[in-house]
């Protein structure tokens, strides 16, 4: 026996998604890059590139280095600034048939608040993802994401500047991820996403210099997956708000691991670079898994790896 039509829909802080598969910020442009490969409407949600109040040039080249089963990047939040994003990039997403979530960043608490406030009046935007975890910018970003007090301060301030759902994106570059999660939950976060990239570097033995122009960068891709799964597990057990899991997801099997660890939804970043249909293949794969394993609702799998009552049913 198999379930004919499993229900893949999930809800994150009031954002209704037809399936749990989202794009990871910074790896999907503003939704246009992969339109020849699949329709955005097939996704659970689209998360666009990190947006700051002013345009940002980003870091010097080279900004990418491939490592074993991973990618180091030091893009440095290059983006055209919130006004241009609103004028030029968001309107074309209005009819895409998919909830749009905008990732926001800044140097100061005021930066975050002004971008959040500005985006709140755009009907296209269904949620904000607050990036307090970018390892590639000197001020801000990770500075806020590395201490529970400062993370809570940003989240609290953003919370007071927007009626939109606030998703807080955590950095894995901390000692106690569950403590960070608890702090942002208490400060008013509606959901948590993790992980952002792991701080790393690579050295060219020929030139004897760092390979990235910015010296250090953020590691993503399959290499980080076990770390990400562990962190999702720890966070999901600690907080009551939904968790969006990401880090090295390439296949439906990877995505299911995150869901079993406690993620309500998953996001795909580097996987899209490897396979331009990655997100869609994962939606298909999750559906098949549910059919074969008689899972009527995907939400039944969320955290099943530690929720004993659910485990018994599998």
């Amino acid at each position: 026996m198999s379930v004919a039509k499993p229900d893949l829909s999930v809800e994150i802080a009031g954002i209704k998604m037809k399936n749990p598969v989202m794009t990871a910020s910074g790896t999907f442009g503003f939704g246009e890059a992969y339109e020849d490969f699949f329709a955005l409407a097939g996704l659970g949600a689209v998360v666009v590139k990190g947006v700051t109040p002013e345009p940002r040039k980003g870091n010097t080249m080279p900004r990418l280095v491939e490592t074993t089963a991973g990618l180091l990047n030091s893009i440095g939040l290059e983006n055209p600034g919130v006004e241009t994003v609103i004028k030029k990039y968001l309107p074309r997403l209005a009819d895409a048939g998919v909830p749009v979530i905008v990732n926001i960043a800044g140097n100061t608490v005021e930066d975050y608040c002004s971008v959040a406030y500005r985006l709140s009046s755009c009907s296209v935007v269904k949620g904000l993802e607050v990036n307090i975890s970018c390892p590639n910018v000197k001020a801000g970003g990770i500075a806020f994401g590395s201490r529970p007090e400062s993370a809570a301060e940003v989240v609290n301030a953003v919370r007071n500047h927007t009626p939109l759902p606030v998703i807080v994106k955590l950095s894995p570059n901390v000692t106690d991820i569950a403590e960070m999660a608890a702090a942002v939950e208490a400060a008013g976060a509606d959901a948590i996403s993790l992980i952002n990239t792991l701080l790393g570097m690579a050295i060219d033995i020929r030139t004897r210099r760092p390979k990235l122009g910015n010296i250090m960068g953020g590691l993503s891709g399959p290499a980080v997956k076990p770390v990400a799964v562990r962190m999702v597990w720890q966070v999901a057990r600690r907080v009551k708000i939904p968790v969006i899991g990401m880090g090295g997801i390439l296949t439906a099997e990877d995505a299911l691991e995150f869901i079993l660890a406690g993620a309500t939804a998953v996001a795909i970043g580097t996987g899209q670079f490897v396979n331009p249909r990655c997100c869609m293949d994962i939606v298909e794969g999750i559906k098949k898994y549910c059919e074969t394993n008689e899972i009527a609702k995907i939400t039944a799998l969320c955290g099943a790896a530690w929720k004993e009552e659910n485990n018994a049913g599998c």
């Binding site: 790896t27 442009g29 890059a33 080279p62 990047n73 331009p276």
Partner: peptide, 13 residues
């Protein structure tokens, strides 16, 4: 150096 090749990652600026 490119990652996506389709304008998504901003790695090749």
């Amino acid at each position: 150096v490119m990652a996506c090749g389709v304008g998504a990652c901003l790695g090749c600026t």
